[in-house]
């Protein structure tokens, strides 16, 4: 695989997938495994001449049928480990993880009509580690857990995993409600190589390699009209 020096400086590869008519970004790694998430075929790699201006644009990482397939895959992976969910609960992390948790829960209900899927919302505001280190305090969201987590297998659900600090707070916040048997983490988007803490997800929708100035935004049909994952490039 060849790469031009200009792209190596950026630390990113840009792929054009003519089959799906989508553009994908990936950080350069020595192993070809780094590209595995983007189903990019060598034959249709097309380096666009205006690499820089293309990088500034917002890229869609996931939408349409592939978004729905990803949700379904995550559900089936959960069923592999939790069978009928008799001893498992789902906790969506406020504010943005609850939409994914709701979607996963309703999808699981349609796959397993007999199962009783317990789904709650967990607010982590008071457990964050950046209180008094930011300009103003964050306004908390509601926590809604109508079941007991003591002795249960808890699946924490969030939309994007980046530094891992939210998940650290979530584990603290959750422990205030009891001692679960086991805790797992499900994320729709895993921003790799950006962790501040030794936290890794158990279930991953897609993995993204991104730089710090970029943002990953997950929008939902319920609130933002469309199911979509976008990579926003700053400035």
């Amino acid at each position: 695989m060849s790469s031009s020096p200009a792209m190596q400086i950026a630390g990113l590869f840009l792929w054009y997938d003519s089959y799906n008519q989508q553009t994908h970004v990936s950080r350069f790694l020595k192993s070809t495994q780094a590209f595995s998430d983007f189903y990019v075929f060598q034959s249709n790699i097309l380096f666009l001449p205006l690499l820089k201006s293309k990088l500034m644009q917002n890229l869609t990482l996931l939408d349409g049928p592939k978004f729905q397939i990803t949700i379904k895959r995550l559900c089936h992976q959960l069923i592999e480990n939790h069978t009928d969910f008799s001893n498992s609960v789902i906790l969506g992390i406020q504010p943005r993880g609850i939409y994914l948790a709701d979607r996963i829960a309703s999808e699981l209900k349609s796959i397993l009509p007999q199962a009783n899927i317990l789904n709650g919302n967990l607010d982590i505001t008071f457990f964050r580690d950046d209180f008094r280190r930011r300009e103003s305090p964050l306004v908390p969201n509601t926590t809604k857990i109508d079941f007991i987590i003591e002795g249960k297998k808890v699946i924490l659900v969030d939309d994007v995993l980046w530094t891992g600090r939210t998940i650290r707070s979530a584990m603290d916040a959750m422990m205030a409600f009891g001692r679960p048997e086991k805790v797992e983490l499900l994320v729709l988007v895993d921003r790799r190589f950006s962790r501040h803490l030794p936290i890794e997800p158990d279930y991953i929708g897609i993995q993204v390699d991104s730089i710090n100035s970029q943002k990953v935004l997950v929008s939902w049909k319920e609130t933002d009209q469309e199911d979509k994952v976008i990579l926003l490039s700053g400035k």
Binding site: D123, T125, F126, F127, R128, F131, R132, V139, P140, N141, T142, T143, D172, A176, F177, G178
Partner: peptide, 25 residues
């Protein structure tokens, strides 16, 4: 804003563990 924040603290006060670590320093 104070009322909205108090709503969530009222919720915290009804939990088995009524303590949050926000002001630990």
């Amino acid at each position: 804003l104070i009322f909205e924040t108090a709503d969530t603290f009222k919720d915290v006060l009804n939990r088995p563990i009524k303590k949050v670590p926000s002001l630990r320093d």
